[in-house]
Amino acid sequence: MNVFRLLGDLSHLASILILLHKIQTTRSCRGISFKTQALYVVVFLTRYLDLFLGDWVSLYNTAMKLFFIGSSCYILYLMKLRFRPTHDPAIDTFRVEYLVGPSLILALIFNYKYTLVEILWAFSIYLEAVAIMPQLFMLQRTGEAETITTHYLAALGAYRGLYIPNWIYRYFSDGTVDPIAVIAGLVQTGLYLDFFYVYFTRVLQGQKFELPA
């Protein structure tokens, strides 16, 4: 565990707390893509299977995994049941099969071991890399976002961004490289670049998040 990894994880944790705060205080999930949130549930369930296989890493690791599974399921519940009328499926139109299908194919080709757990792990890494696309697509479509939603996205983007210096650190400190995680992580971070540009040049200057028409 190094400082980049810890900050990355805390940023991930913060993003979920920001999202929960947004939904609870505005009593609305307007502007949030249900499809992206559903993909995260799939990502966590397929990646954290090791929880049930007795593959113990640390209390920190187990607690975080349980939190990510639990909170992502809770968010789906809030969106689908509790605040259902505030979710507009008409603008959440990205085709998730374009993300799930290729991720599955990639996982079948590129994995560390040809076992169910390892294929699902690789699948979860590839799927996570692109899971934000329905959300970004929705943002692009509506052309604007509530400020709190942009803070959520910024924290989520920072999480994978911070994993990059973590991997560089690990390469020099213990000589390990996880090519699947690194390549997918670079793609994932890259998807946020346009968003971050607008976030830094507008939202952090006190302006509303608006895309040029």
Partner: peptide
């Protein structure tokens, strides 16, 4: 050699 690769990241 273990049957699974050890993934210690989240």
């Amino acid at each position: 050699d273990d049957d699974t690769t050890r993934h210690d990241e989240l």
